[in-house]
Each structure stands twice: as structure tokens, then as C-alpha cells.
Design a protein around this nucleic acid. Structure first.
Lengths: 337, 337
DNA sequence: GCGGCATTTTGTAGCGCTACAATTTTTACG
DNA sequence: CGTAAAAATTGTAGCGCTACAAAATGCCGC
């Protein structure tokens, strides 16, 4: 109306200022800290913003303030659904403070973690949560506060560690099965830090109780297929097994396949317990007893630590373990006979 | 070495230029179009970049060039794994052209799509793929080229539509079951565009064949729980049903729960077919026959269309349907008796 | 060796925003 | 009503990069 600004250009802070009859600085101030502006001007600016459909340019803000109010989250694979709880936990803390989360996956198997981190750093994220196995090349945390979530190996120097207590979860599973009277117990494990801790916690408790434990697939993958293969081996070589602890729910699903193929009944003949308390475990069809690693709490804690380090330069807090909980459903039962 | 630059600051293009003995403009040129720079300078610049650990500032680049070489992808819920294939399909096309994908979910149930879009637009994405039910408020595509993927209702004006041929997929499922001799067939449906098209395609084919179709849950959700409830109703009110088509694999899992509870056997007494060909369908335990909607192809196509519109200002291409395929596994069998 | 042309390199002027000091307005109170 | 202090507002100078015109250099044949 005032003049012929090309229609395609998005409105800038100057357009808003002109419209509201104030200086650009004032508009900026309204955007950042409305309380410090008199009500009269604040309303005028807000009105101009809505009328023009103004949207601040993230790029310009980032450049000028060297803060983006965003946290980068690196996950290993979108298909590993545990990150969803982690993300929700983070967001529950971050949105209140006006932060947003930027997600990047590290292309499973391609070791592209550093690439994902690079991308996020290029976007000027204020902090980083790494929820994937840190690569050897990341010896030192990049220039921003960093938290490693859910993994314990290769934590870069200067990074905090907040992770599920996988030892404790393994011990819980063992405790549960022992309490039901099982003594010949199989464990479907896999390669990687989390699996190793679950295995260790599980084994420790069984050893203390003098139970007979058979571990399979310590060096293998953790997919449904791997669970199936490991369970087949287990059931064929130790047919007297009465309970199976799978390192995750997906592997437990694989175990069900092997059990079904052998005509065994769950839980009357064999008990199964998984890990992750995924939607799979919650389904009516499986009703899988599972350990819930409370990734939501890991996310919350990670966000809190990060915010503290970003906003007040708090020092690294070291390592924090989040206690898991056991969710008992229909796939575990007292020892038959 | 040359002077006392604070250690905390990340190196800029000026630092690189000084180090390499060239002008900042030349460094910028190397970054964008190395071919136009003489080999001598190019090598010098590259050396300086690696030595200083220089990483371009996305914010500054975006601001100065008003391009970010990034595409925003809005999904409805990270737990709906179909987006993973979509994403991979997009990336397979985009990475070659140097584009990256930024993901945002629209907080299921909260109708926060516009919020997600706002966030991405603030980041100056060059294009947008919306893989969620567009809200009514998004009548017109935002300032950037937009593609709606996988939904057919409420496509904003000016946006392209690239979607799975859900009608065709439904018809495929019907064709498969009819071919096996089934005539009393249940369908677990749900609210939403995709489910409606699967239902329509399925119903059309059954009607043509004169088969008896029972639809449940047209207005309900599409979770495992919903599938369970709908299947329960179906089996209790139409006990003569010999085949079930679920609108997605998760609902099929729910159906398994209901079938199991009633002591029926799959596939000898009742056939089940799902949709999505998810990891669930592929598992050994379920071996679920399922329609694969080829979301990877949708992603590829969406990326191509977007690139064409971004790079050469090509006009909107309208709508494109991607043909699904049927994957037959162990849960469908000829009509018993 | 030199004009004429193509190729390579560089200076200048922003992109849209914020930080911060400087300025103006308001408020408090003798 | 005056004046100091507090509160509100504004101007200036970048943030790190790119676009583009202008300048410098290289190359060619004669």
C-alpha cells in the first residue's frame, strides 16, 4: 500500500517496523523479550506482524546472534523406534524454553555419524545429542555442548553421558525369570554396547542364583531375523530351555517365530521376555513382557543437562544412569510342572 | 600463527582466504563451483580449509544466497514407519544434487502441521514435502515449491500431489483374496484419506465379483488397538468370515490378536492381508501377506518434481500415482473346504 | 611486443537480524 | 516545577557469506 514492494519477497523486520511506526530494533526486541516493550508499541508490532504475515528469518537470527535455539539430535536409524521416546522427552523440556530439535540420522551401517554431526553444526545448533554409536573419529566433542545418549562406548571428551541402565534392566529380567522358578534360561544377545550391558546384568544375576544360562549371538545383529536364527540354534541345542530373554523386542518377535516353528507354546512351555517395551510388546497379539528403558527420561535429562550447559555454561555433569522398569505381560509364566 | 585470533571462534571464509593467500570471494567460488577456479588456487584453498577445519556457515550462506539446498519433510508421526522409505527415496535423488532433507513431525493429533511448516520455512527450505494430512488452514502452498505425498485431501493450491495408488492397492488385495476363492470378506478400515481409498478400491473389486464385504471401523483410528477392536466386532457379528483385509499391517497385528483369542488358525481357517509391507509383515512370526505401497518411489518422484520446480522453475506437474505391489506370504490361503 | 578476447580473480554492497551504546521519554520525588 | 534515575526506544556496526560488476591476468596470432 505504502509503496511497490515486490510481492514475492517475504516481509522483513523493516517492513514490520515501518508498518508499526517504530524502529527495526524495537521489532527485534518484541520478538525476543516482549516484556521490555511498552504495551502500546508491543501491540502495534504484533498487529503489523500478523498483518504482513511476517516470519523471522532463522538464518539472519542465527548469523546475528550466533544462537539458534535449536538442539541437534543424531540417531542411528529412524527404524529404531526408541528414539521417538527420547525425542518426546527432549521436546517436553525444550519447547518450554523455546528450543527446537533438529533430527539427523547417521545412515545405518555407513558410519556417517560425522557427516550428520557436520550437517547439524553447519546449521549452528546450540547443542548436540548423539543417540548413536559415536565413531572413533569423534574423539573430542565439537564446539558445542554435547550429550551422548544411550551408548557408553567412545564418548567424546567433554561430552556428557546419559544412558539407560542396561545392566540394571538385564538384572531385572533375570530377577523376574528366577522368581518364576526358571533355571535353564537362554539369552539372545547381539553386537554393541547396549546389548553387552544387558547381557552382563542378566548374566550376573543368573550366576549369583546358580542358574544355567545359554547366550547366543553375542557377535551378531539385533534384527528380527537375527533373533529368529539365534532362537533356532538355542532351541535345537538346548531343548530343555524354559525361558528366553531377548536383547530387544524385535529379536523377541524372531524368537516367537522359532518357537512357533517348533510347536512350543508361550508361556505355558516357554517364557519370553523382551526389551524396549515397544508398541510391538504392547500389542494384544504378543502381550510381551518387556523391560522399559525409559528413554523418555533419558531425553528429558539430556535436554536439561544441555540447557544448563548452554544457558549458564555449567560444567559437564559426567554420566547419569536412568533406571528402567519391568512391564510384565502375558509371555512369562511360572516354570511348568 | 599469524595473529591472536580467539581460539573459540570458528574459522570464517576470511581466515581461509588469508591462509591460502587469496581473496574471500575466491574461497566462496571454490566452495560453490570449483571448476571455475585455477587448479593452483583451488588446491591452496582446499588445503587451507582442511588445515583450519573450516566449515561453511549454513546461516550466512542462506542469508546471502537465499537458497539453502535443503528440502523440508513434514511427517505426521515418527512412529508411522512408512516415512522411512519415503525419506530414503527422496535422499537417493537429493544427495546427488547436494541437497539435504530436514525432518519435522506434526505432533500426531495436535494438528500442528502449520507449526511444523512454519519452522521449516523459517529455516529457508527451498522446497517442502508434506507427508501428513494437510490442515484446512493451509489453503495455499507457502512461498516455496510444495509436494504433498501420500494424501489426497486438502492439497493446497499450487502444490503437486504424488501419492500411492491406494485404490489400486485395495483392488489388488481384493483380487488376491477373490482368486483364492474367498467370498465372505471383512475389511478393517479407518479414518483418513489413504484408508478411504484402500477401502474404495477394495470394495469396488469385491462388488464387481459379487462377494460379501463387511467393513468395520471406517470412522475409527488405525492403530493396533483399533484393529483388534474392529476384528473382534467383525468375528463376533460375522463368524462366517474367511478373510480379512486390514488397512495397514499394524491393524493386521491387532486382527491376529482377535483371531487368536477366538481360537482360529491363520491361514487355514482365516486369511489375513495387510498393507504397507512393513518390517512387521516381513517377520518370520507373522509372514504377513501385504500390499507394498512403494513409498520409496513416491519419495524419489517427489524429490524429482521438487528439484525441477526449484532449479528451473518448472510448473506444477499436477498429480502422480505410484503403483503398489502385492507381496504374498503365509497368511493368505485358498478358501478352506 | 601488442591489441583483442577469454579466463581468472577481486572489491563492493548487501542478505535480515541482533547487540549495545547512545538517545529520548517517562517516572519519582524533593 | 526541576532534576536525577529508570524505562523505553533508536542508530550503528557488524554476523559470514554471495552476487555481480570491475579489474587483473593469461593467451592468441601477427
Amino acid at each position: 500500500m505504502t509503496h511497490d514492494r515486490p510481492k514475492t519477497r517475504r516481509p522483513t523486520i523493516y517492513d514490520v517496523a515501518k508498518q508499526a511506526g517504530v524502529s527495526p530494533s524495537l521489532v527485534s526486541l518484541v520478538l525476543q523479550n516482549p516484556v521490555r516493550v511498552s504495551e502500546k508499541r508491543r501491540d502495534a508490532v504484533q498487529a503489523a506482524i500478523t498483518e504482513l504475515g511476517y516470519r523471522p528469518s532463522q538464518a539472519a537470527t542465527a548469523l546475528a546472534s550466533s544462537r539458534t535455539k535449536s538442539i541437534g539430535l543424531v540417531i542411528d536409524d529412524y527404524r529404531n523406534l526408541w528414539f521417538v521416546d527420547l525425542l518426546r522427552g527432549m521436546e517436553s523440556v525444550l519447547t518450554e524454553e523455546g528450543y527446537r530439535v533438529m533430527l539427523a540420522d547417521s545412515r545405518p551401517g555407513e558410519n556417517r555419524i560425522s557427516e550428520a554431526v557436520d550437517g547439524l553444526l553447519a546449521m549452528h545448533v546450540d547443542g548436540l545429542v548423539i543417540a548413536a554409536e559415536p565413531s572413533a573419529s569423534m574423539l573430542t566433542a565439537a564446539g558445542v555442548p554435547t550429550v551422548v545418549a544411550g551408548w557408553r562406548n567412545g564418548v567424546p571428551a567433554g561430552a556428557d553421558l546419559i544412558t539407560n541402565d542396561d545392566d540394571g534392566g538385564g538384572a531385572m529380567a533375570a530377577h523376574h525369570l528366577l522368581g518364576l522358578g526358571h533355571t535353564r534360561i537362554g539369552h539372545l544377545s547381539g553386537f554393541g554396547g547396549a546389548a553387552a550391558h544387558r547381557r552382563a546384568g542378566f548374566a550376573g544375576r543368573l550366576r549369583d542364583a546358580g542358574a544355567d544360562m545359554r547366550v547366543v549371538g553375542e557377535a551378531g545383529g539385533t534384527s528380527e531375523e537375527d533373533g529368529y536364527a539365534s532362537a533356532c540354534w538355542l532351541l535345537d541345542h538346548h531343548p530343555d530351555t524354559t525361558a528366553i530373554f531377548a536383547a530387544n523386542d524385535t529379536m523377541a518377535l524372531g524368537a516367537f517365530g522359532a518357537i512357533k516353528a517348533r510347536g512350543l507354546a508361550v508361556p505355558s512351555q516357554i517364557s519370553v521376555i523382551g526389551y524396549d517395551n515397544s508398541t510391538l510388546a504392547k500389542s494384544r497379539y504378543l502381550e510381551l513382557t518387556s523391560v522399559d528403558n525409559r528413554s523418555d527420561l533419558v531425553g528429558k535429562e539430556a535436554a536439561k543437562v544441555l540447557l544448563a550447559r548452554i544457558e549458564s555454561g555449567a560444567p559437564s555433569s559426567g554420566r547419569t544412569l536412568i533406571a528402567p522398569t519391568l512391564v510384565v505381560r502375558g509371555t512369562t509364566a511360572p516354570l511348568p510342572g
